[in-house]
Computed example of a mutant assay.
Amino acid sequence: MVRKKKKLRVERVIIVCVIALVIGFGLYKGITWAFQSITSLLTPDVQEEVVEPEIEKPKNYIATVVIDPGHGDWDPGANVGNVLEKDISLTTSKAIEQALDEANIKAVLTRETDISLSDNKIDDLKKRAAKSAENNANYFVSIHVNSFDESDEVSGFEIYKKNDESHSLAQNIGKNIETLNYSKNRGILDGGKSLQVLRDNMVPSVLIELGYLNNDNDYSYLSNDEKLQEMGKAIAKGIIEEVQTHLLDNSTQNNINK
Rank of each mutant, 00 (worst) to 15 (best):
K7F: 08
R12F: 11
C17Q: 11
I19W: 11
L21I: 14
V22H: 05
F25A: 15
G26L: 11
I31M: 09
I31P: 00
T32V: 14
A34G: 04
A34Q: 06
A34W: 02
Q36M: 15
S37P: 11
I38P: 08
V46P: 05
Q47W: 00
E49H: 11
P53R: 09
I55H: 09
E56Q: 13
E56I: 15
K57Q: 15
N60V: 08
Y61K: 01
T64E: 05
T64W: 05
V66G: 03
I67F: 01
P69H: 00
G70F: 07
D75V: 00
P76K: 00
P76M: 00
G77Y: 05
G77W: 04
A78M: 11
N79F: 06
G81W: 01
G81A: 07
G81Q: 00
S89G: 07
L90E: 09
T91W: 09
K94V: 01
E97D: 15
A103T: 09
N104A: 12
K106I: 05
K106Q: 13
V108M: 07
V108K: 01
T110H: 12
T113W: 07
D114L: 06
S116A: 15
L117K: 13
S118L: 02
S118P: 04
D119K: 15
D119S: 15
K121H: 13
K121R: 14
I122T: 14
D123Y: 09
D124F: 01
D124E: 09
K126E: 15
K126L: 14
K127F: 04
R128C: 02
K131N: 10
E134M: 06
N138Q: 08
Y139H: 03
Y139P: 03
I143G: 02
I143V: 12
H144K: 02
V145P: 08
V145H: 09
N146K: 02
E150P: 10
S151P: 13
S151K: 09
S151A: 11
E153W: 07
G156K: 02
I159K: 05
K161S: 07
K161Y: 03
K162W: 01
E165H: 06
H167P: 09
A170M: 05
Q171G: 03
I173L: 09
G174T: 03
K175I: 10
K175N: 04
N185A: 13
R186T: 10
G187P: 11
D190G: 08
G192L: 05
K193V: 11
S194F: 07
L195T: 00
R199V: 04
V203I: 11
S205G: 11
V206N: 01
L207M: 09
I208F: 01
G211F: 02
Y212N: 07
Y212Q: 12
L213H: 03
L213C: 03
N215R: 03
D216M: 10
Y221M: 04
L222R: 01
D225M: 02
D225C: 00
E226W: 01
E226I: 06
E230V: 02
K233M: 08
K237M: 07
G238L: 07
G238C: 08
E242W: 02
T245S: 15
N250W: 10
Q253M: 14
Q253G: 06
Q253C: 13
N255I: 14
N255P: 08
N255M: 14
N257R: 12
N257L: 13
